[in-house]
Protein backbone atom coordinates (compact mmCIF):
# COMPACT_ATOMS: atom_id res chain seq x y z
CA UNK A 1 0.00 0.00 0.00
CA UNK A 2 1.31 3.47 -0.82
CA UNK A 3 0.96 6.33 1.65
CA UNK A 4 -1.15 9.27 0.52
CA UNK A 5 0.91 12.23 -0.72
CA UNK A 6 0.22 14.35 2.36
CA UNK A 7 3.01 16.81 3.22
CA UNK A 8 4.90 15.98 6.38
CA UNK A 9 5.32 18.78 8.92
CA UNK A 10 8.71 19.36 10.42
CA UNK A 11 9.35 21.47 13.52
CA UNK A 12 12.17 23.72 12.38
CA UNK A 13 12.60 25.55 15.64
CA UNK A 14 11.34 25.18 19.21
CA UNK A 15 12.35 26.00 22.79
CA UNK A 16 15.36 23.93 23.87
CA UNK A 17 14.91 21.20 26.50
CA UNK A 18 17.43 22.87 28.79
CA UNK A 19 15.10 25.86 29.03
CA UNK A 20 12.35 26.04 31.62
CA UNK A 21 8.88 27.27 30.69
CA UNK A 22 9.24 30.49 32.66
CA UNK A 23 9.02 33.82 30.88
CA UNK A 24 12.22 35.76 31.49
CA UNK A 25 12.19 39.00 33.48
CA UNK A 26 14.30 40.70 30.81
CA UNK A 27 12.96 43.80 29.10
CA UNK A 28 11.43 43.38 25.62
CA UNK A 29 14.16 43.07 23.01
CA UNK A 30 17.01 42.46 25.47
CA UNK A 31 19.45 39.99 23.92
CA UNK A 32 20.18 38.31 27.26
CA UNK A 33 17.34 36.06 26.17
CA UNK A 34 19.12 35.13 22.96
CA UNK A 35 22.29 34.31 24.86
CA UNK A 36 20.34 32.17 27.33
CA UNK A 37 18.65 30.27 24.52
CA UNK A 38 21.93 29.65 22.67
CA UNK A 39 23.51 28.22 25.82
CA UNK A 40 20.49 25.99 26.37
CA UNK A 41 20.60 24.81 22.76
CA UNK A 42 24.32 24.06 22.87
CA UNK A 43 24.01 22.18 26.17
CA UNK A 44 21.12 20.17 24.71
CA UNK A 45 22.92 19.41 21.48
CA UNK A 46 26.08 18.36 23.30
CA UNK A 47 24.05 16.25 25.75
CA UNK A 48 25.54 17.98 28.78
CA UNK A 49 22.40 19.01 30.65
CA UNK A 50 22.50 16.29 33.29
CA UNK A 51 26.05 17.04 34.33
CA UNK A 52 26.06 20.80 34.02
CA UNK A 53 26.19 23.21 36.93
CA UNK A 54 25.59 26.86 36.08
CA UNK A 55 26.75 29.82 38.14
CA UNK A 56 24.52 32.89 37.94
CA UNK A 57 25.92 36.35 38.67
CA UNK A 58 24.63 39.55 40.23
CA UNK A 59 23.23 41.94 37.68
CA UNK A 60 20.34 41.64 35.24
CA UNK A 61 21.04 37.95 34.84
CA UNK A 62 20.79 37.30 38.58
CA UNK A 63 17.71 35.19 37.84
CA UNK A 64 19.38 33.21 35.05
CA UNK A 65 19.06 30.10 37.20
CA UNK A 66 15.28 30.19 36.81
CA UNK A 67 15.41 29.77 33.06
CA UNK A 68 17.78 26.84 32.75
CA UNK A 69 16.51 23.36 33.44
CA UNK A 70 19.69 22.26 35.21
CA UNK A 71 21.55 22.58 38.52
CA UNK A 72 22.45 26.16 39.32
CA UNK A 73 23.99 28.30 42.03
CA UNK A 74 23.93 32.06 42.48
CA UNK A 75 27.22 33.83 43.18
CA UNK A 76 27.97 37.09 44.99
CA UNK A 77 28.67 40.02 42.67
CA UNK A 78 31.76 39.28 40.58
CA UNK A 79 32.63 36.03 42.32
CA UNK A 80 31.15 33.57 39.86
CA UNK A 81 34.58 32.40 38.58
CA UNK A 82 35.68 31.73 42.18
CA UNK A 83 32.52 29.79 42.91
CA UNK A 84 32.89 27.90 39.64
CA UNK A 85 36.48 27.09 40.63
CA UNK A 86 35.31 25.73 43.96
CA UNK A 87 32.74 23.53 42.24
CA UNK A 88 34.89 22.33 39.35
CA UNK A 89 37.79 21.37 41.58
CA UNK A 90 35.68 19.00 43.64
CA UNK A 91 33.54 17.82 40.69
CA UNK A 92 36.01 17.76 37.79
CA UNK A 93 33.76 15.47 35.71
CA UNK A 94 30.91 17.97 35.67
CA UNK A 95 30.47 20.82 33.21
CA UNK A 96 30.62 24.17 34.98
CA UNK A 97 29.83 27.51 33.41
CA UNK A 98 29.36 31.06 34.62
CA UNK A 99 27.15 33.69 33.05
CA UNK A 100 28.32 37.20 33.85
CA UNK A 101 27.68 40.76 32.79
CA UNK A 102 30.22 43.50 32.26
CA UNK A 103 29.88 45.07 35.71
CA UNK A 104 30.13 41.66 37.34
CA UNK A 105 33.04 40.36 35.28
CA UNK A 106 35.05 43.42 34.27
CA UNK A 107 34.61 45.62 37.34
CA UNK A 108 33.92 44.05 40.73
CA UNK A 109 34.95 40.59 39.57
CA UNK A 110 38.10 41.57 37.69
CA UNK A 111 40.41 39.74 40.08
CA UNK A 112 38.33 36.57 40.07
CA UNK A 113 38.06 36.34 36.27
CA UNK A 114 41.74 37.12 35.64
CA UNK A 115 42.95 34.55 38.14
CA UNK A 116 40.50 31.86 37.07
CA UNK A 117 41.92 32.32 33.55
CA UNK A 118 45.51 32.45 34.81
CA UNK A 119 45.01 29.19 36.69
CA UNK A 120 43.54 27.68 33.55
CA UNK A 121 40.40 26.65 35.40
CA UNK A 122 38.60 24.21 33.18
CA UNK A 123 35.36 26.20 33.20
CA UNK A 124 33.37 28.10 30.58
CA UNK A 125 32.48 31.76 30.99
CA UNK A 126 29.75 33.49 29.04
CA UNK A 127 30.42 37.20 29.25
CA UNK A 128 27.56 39.52 28.30
CA UNK A 129 28.93 42.91 27.33
CA UNK A 130 26.21 45.52 26.90
CA UNK A 131 28.33 48.48 27.94
CA UNK A 132 26.07 49.42 30.84
CA UNK A 133 24.79 48.40 34.28
CA UNK A 134 21.29 47.21 33.51
CA UNK A 135 19.93 45.96 36.84
CA UNK A 136 20.75 49.11 38.82
CA UNK A 137 19.27 51.33 36.14
CA UNK A 138 21.84 52.23 33.53
CA UNK A 139 25.06 53.36 35.19
CA UNK A 140 28.45 53.53 33.49
CA UNK A 141 30.12 50.14 33.13
CA UNK A 142 33.80 49.33 32.63
CA UNK A 143 32.87 48.68 29.00
CA UNK A 144 30.81 51.85 28.42
CA UNK A 145 31.87 53.50 25.17
CA UNK A 146 33.65 56.86 25.18
CA UNK A 147 31.05 59.60 25.01
CA UNK A 148 28.19 57.24 25.85
CA UNK A 149 25.56 58.70 28.14
CA UNK A 150 24.59 56.73 31.24
CA UNK A 151 22.97 57.77 34.53
CA UNK A 152 26.40 58.05 36.14
CA UNK A 153 28.05 59.63 33.10
CA UNK A 154 25.17 62.01 32.34
CA UNK A 155 27.29 64.19 30.05
CA UNK A 156 28.70 61.22 28.17
CA UNK A 157 31.65 59.11 29.30
CA UNK A 158 34.56 61.50 29.59
CA UNK A 159 37.68 59.41 29.13
CA UNK A 160 39.76 62.12 30.81
CA UNK A 161 37.87 61.52 34.03
CA UNK A 162 36.66 57.94 33.80
CA UNK A 163 39.15 56.20 31.56
CA UNK A 164 38.49 53.86 28.69
CA UNK A 165 36.43 50.76 28.05
CA UNK A 166 38.15 47.51 29.01
CA UNK A 167 38.62 44.84 26.37
CA UNK A 168 38.40 41.70 28.45
CA UNK A 169 38.80 39.12 25.71
CA UNK A 170 42.02 40.64 24.44
CA UNK A 171 43.39 40.80 27.96
CA UNK A 172 42.37 37.28 28.96
CA UNK A 173 43.79 35.82 25.77
CA UNK A 174 47.26 36.76 27.00
CA UNK A 175 46.89 34.20 29.79
CA UNK A 176 48.56 30.87 29.12
CA UNK A 177 45.81 29.07 31.01
CA UNK A 178 43.16 29.89 28.45
CA UNK A 179 42.05 27.49 25.74
CA UNK A 180 39.41 29.44 23.89
CA UNK A 181 38.66 33.18 24.02
CA UNK A 182 36.49 34.82 21.37
CA UNK A 183 34.17 37.79 21.00
CA UNK A 184 30.89 37.46 19.15
CA UNK A 185 27.79 39.60 18.81
CA UNK A 186 24.05 39.04 19.03
CA UNK A 187 22.97 41.85 16.71
CA UNK A 188 21.74 39.80 13.75
CA UNK A 189 20.98 36.24 12.72
CA UNK A 190 24.33 35.67 11.05
CA UNK A 191 26.18 36.76 14.16
CA UNK A 192 23.86 34.84 16.47
CA UNK A 193 24.68 31.68 14.48
CA UNK A 194 28.39 32.44 14.89
CA UNK A 195 27.86 33.04 18.59
CA UNK A 196 26.25 29.63 18.94
CA UNK A 197 29.16 27.99 17.19
CA UNK A 198 31.52 29.76 19.57
CA UNK A 199 29.56 28.56 22.58
CA UNK A 200 29.81 25.06 21.23
CA UNK A 201 33.58 25.45 20.92
CA UNK A 202 33.83 26.89 24.42
CA UNK A 203 32.01 23.94 26.01
CA UNK A 204 34.04 21.61 23.80
CA UNK A 205 37.18 23.23 25.25
CA UNK A 206 35.97 22.34 28.70
CA UNK A 207 34.94 18.80 27.74
CA UNK A 208 38.40 18.19 26.30
CA UNK A 209 40.10 19.67 29.37
CA UNK A 210 41.87 22.36 27.37
CA UNK A 211 41.58 25.07 30.00
CA UNK A 212 39.64 28.23 30.55
CA UNK A 213 37.14 29.19 27.86
CA UNK A 214 35.17 32.38 27.42
CA UNK A 215 32.76 33.72 24.85
CA UNK A 216 32.21 37.46 25.08
CA UNK A 217 28.85 38.39 23.58
CA UNK A 218 28.05 41.95 22.56
CA UNK A 219 24.51 42.38 23.76
CA UNK A 220 21.82 45.05 23.75
CA UNK A 221 20.14 47.00 26.52
CA UNK A 222 17.27 48.87 24.85
CA UNK A 223 15.82 50.10 28.15
CA UNK A 224 18.94 51.73 29.51
CA UNK A 225 20.35 52.79 26.15
CA UNK A 226 16.94 54.36 25.67
CA UNK A 227 16.57 53.21 22.05
CA UNK A 228 14.15 50.69 20.64
CA UNK A 229 15.11 47.02 20.29
CA UNK A 230 15.81 47.11 16.52
CA UNK A 231 17.85 50.30 16.78
CA UNK A 232 19.71 48.74 19.71
CA UNK A 233 20.93 45.98 17.42
CA UNK A 234 22.12 48.64 15.00
CA UNK A 235 23.91 50.37 17.89
CA UNK A 236 25.84 47.16 18.56
CA UNK A 237 26.89 46.85 14.92
CA UNK A 238 27.74 50.51 14.39
CA UNK A 239 29.04 51.67 17.76
CA UNK A 240 30.14 48.68 19.81
CA UNK A 241 31.81 46.47 17.23
CA UNK A 242 34.40 49.14 16.29
CA UNK A 243 35.45 49.33 19.96
CA UNK A 244 35.05 45.63 20.65
CA UNK A 245 36.12 43.86 17.46
CA UNK A 246 34.61 40.44 16.78
CA UNK A 247 37.48 38.02 16.64
CA UNK A 248 39.10 34.81 17.85
CA UNK A 249 41.68 35.85 20.40
CA UNK A 250 42.77 32.42 21.52
CA UNK A 251 41.95 29.07 20.02
CA UNK A 252 43.86 26.06 21.26
CA UNK A 253 45.01 24.22 18.11
CA UNK A 254 43.69 20.96 19.62
CA UNK A 255 40.18 22.30 19.08
CA UNK A 256 40.51 22.27 15.34
CA UNK A 257 41.52 18.61 15.41
CA UNK A 258 38.91 15.87 15.58
CA UNK A 259 38.26 14.34 18.95
CA UNK A 260 40.20 11.10 19.39
Amino acid sequence: MTAPAKPEVKVVFQRPESFTDLTTHYCPGCTHGVAHRLIAEVIDEMGLREKTIGVAPVGCSVFAYKYFNMDFVEAPHGRAPAMATGIKRVLPQNTVFTYQGDGDLASIGMAEIMHAAARGENITVIFINNAIYGMTGGQMAPTTLPGMTTTSSPFGRDVELTGFPIRMSEMLATMDGTGYIVRRSLHDVKNIRKAKKALFMAFETQERGLGFSMVELLSSCPTNWKIDPSKSLEFIAERMVPVFPLDDFKVNPELTKKRA
Binding site: T2, A3, A5, K6, P7, E8, V9, K10, V11, V12, F13, Q14, R15, P16, F19, T23, T24, Y26, P28, G29, C30, T31, H32, G33, V34, R37, D188, V189, I192, R193
Partner: peptide, 26 residues
Protein backbone atom coordinates in the same frame (compact mmCIF):
# COMPACT_ATOMS: atom_id res chain seq x y z
CA UNK B 1 13.41 30.42 11.43
CA UNK B 2 15.17 33.78 11.25
CA UNK B 3 12.44 35.23 13.50
CA UNK B 4 12.96 32.47 16.07
CA UNK B 5 16.72 32.90 16.05
CA UNK B 6 16.51 36.65 16.72
CA UNK B 7 13.69 36.23 19.29
CA UNK B 8 15.13 36.92 22.76
CA UNK B 9 12.33 34.99 24.44
CA UNK B 10 12.23 31.70 22.55
CA UNK B 11 8.58 32.54 21.95
CA UNK B 12 8.41 31.33 18.37
CA UNK B 13 8.01 27.75 17.19
CA UNK B 14 8.65 27.36 13.47
CA UNK B 15 7.06 24.69 11.27
CA UNK B 16 7.79 23.78 7.71
CA UNK B 17 6.08 21.46 5.25
CA UNK B 18 8.47 18.87 3.90
CA UNK B 19 7.83 18.85 0.13
CA UNK B 20 6.29 15.55 -0.94
CA UNK B 21 8.74 14.92 -3.80
CA UNK B 22 11.70 14.91 -1.44
CA UNK B 23 10.16 12.12 0.59
CA UNK B 24 11.20 8.53 0.14
CA UNK B 25 8.33 6.22 -0.70
CA UNK B 26 7.19 4.75 2.60
Amino acid sequence: AVCAIICPDAAITVFREVPVHSKKAP
